[in-house]
Amino acid sequence: MRAFVSFSVLALIVVGLALSLSHVPFGKDRMQVANYYLDHGVADTGATNLVTAVVLNYRALDTLGEVTVLFIASLGLGVFLSWPKKKEGTQEEGKRELPEASLIVRRGSQFLFPLIILFGGYIFLHGHLTPGGGFQGGSVIASAFLLMFLGNNAYRLRHTPLTVTESLAGITFVVVGLIGLGVGGYFLNNFLPKGSMFSLFSAGVIPILYSAIGLKVGAELSGIVANMFESRSER
């Protein structure tokens, strides 16, 4: 019965998708809005990576909303995993479930940790010039913390610096947007000089905003990983 219902729902969706996709002109020319972004993107924003120009200049308000969605998801995860309150002792028991990793794994992860953080910072600082940006750099930073958790059994992340970083990055994004509102007349106006193409200090406020997003996403995803590791086992 259940398989039959699943199959019929699936068949319905297949027919609907096929009917609607057959009207999409795949691989023909771009939309007009994309033509505008490609033709005027560099002149308007100064960013040579046009995806970044769309994410942080033309659609920056959407990006603020998406960062907020991610923040609420990580907040909900923290609430669910820390409630009800842990009893004393169960925490210590959960910590010693696994044997300690070997010396090579421990030292290797500690050696690689700053290098991965540096690479994440490089990715989000050059987001307006090369492929990459705040979202990718933030996830690379979070994978560095994941490596530390996997390699070192006793590793514990202090949550206060993470929270402070996250809050400051979010405030930076909104304050830059409000300064744009005051100077140029609309929220997230690109009020700084565009600079010359292909240099690090170009594209106005875009490097500042992408660094803020990178720090915020990195702190949030690291917080998610840390919360998952530190929650007590249910078995």
């Binding site: 771009r30 939309m31 809005v33 994309a34 972004y37 490609l38 993107g41 046009l50 995806v51 120009a53 769309v54 994410v55 659609r59 959407d62 990006t63 998406e66 969605v69 991610l70 998801a73 990580s74 909900g76 995860l77 669910f80 940006g133 979202f135 933030g138 996830s139 996403v217 949030e220 995803l221 998610i224 998952m228």
Partner: peptide, 21 residues
């Protein structure tokens, strides 16, 4: 076209948040 790429870029990150929740 850069517009779908910009949409998908943020959708992936939000997908991780939703999966974790």
């Amino acid at each position: 076209d850069p517009v779908p790429q910009a949409l998908v870029l943020t959708a992936i990150v939000i997908g991780l948040g939703v999966t974790a929740l």
